[in-house]
Amino acid sequence: MNHEFTEQYYLLTKERLLAQQELINELGAPVIPIVDAIAVLPLIGEIDTFRAKGILITTPGKCISRNVSHLFIDLSGVTLLDTMVAHQIYQLTSTLNLLGIQSTISGIRPEVAQTSIQLGLDFSHVSTHSTLKQALSKQGIGIKLYERK
Rank of each mutant, 00 (worst) to 15 (best):
M1G: 14
N2F: 05
Q134M: 08
T95P: 06
L92I: 12
P42T: 04
L80P: 00
I117T: 14
P33K: 15
L96F: 01
I57L: 11
I108M: 15
D48S: 05
G61I: 06
F123L: 06
Q21A: 14
H87Q: 14
D74P: 00
P110C: 15
L11D: 10
T79N: 11
V68Y: 04
F123P: 05
Y90E: 06
I73D: 02
L96Q: 04
S76H: 13
K144Q: 03
P42R: 01
L27N: 13
N25W: 05
T93W: 00
M1P: 06
V85Y: 03
K138Q: 04
R109D: 06
Q139P: 12
L71E: 05
H3A: 11
A52F: 09
K62G: 04
E111P: 02
S76P: 09
V40G: 00
T104W: 05
K53N: 15
I105M: 11
R16P: 01
L27K: 05
T128W: 08
Q102C: 02
E22S: 09
Q118L: 15
G54L: 07
T49D: 08
C63R: 04
L12Q: 12
T49G: 07
Q102K: 15
T13I: 04
I117C: 09
A52V: 04
I32Y: 10
I108F: 03
L27F: 03
T131Q: 10
I143E: 08
A52G: 13
Q139D: 13
M84D: 06
L75G: 01
V126P: 04
F123K: 11
L41V: 08
L43P: 00
Q114W: 01
T104Q: 12
S94P: 02
S65P: 02
I143L: 14
L18P: 03
K138I: 01
G120N: 14
L12H: 12
M1D: 09
K138D: 13
K53C: 07
I34N: 04
K53F: 04
G140M: 08
A86I: 08
I44W: 00
V78C: 11
T49S: 08
E7R: 14
E147D: 09
R109S: 06
I24V: 15
Q118N: 11
D74S: 02
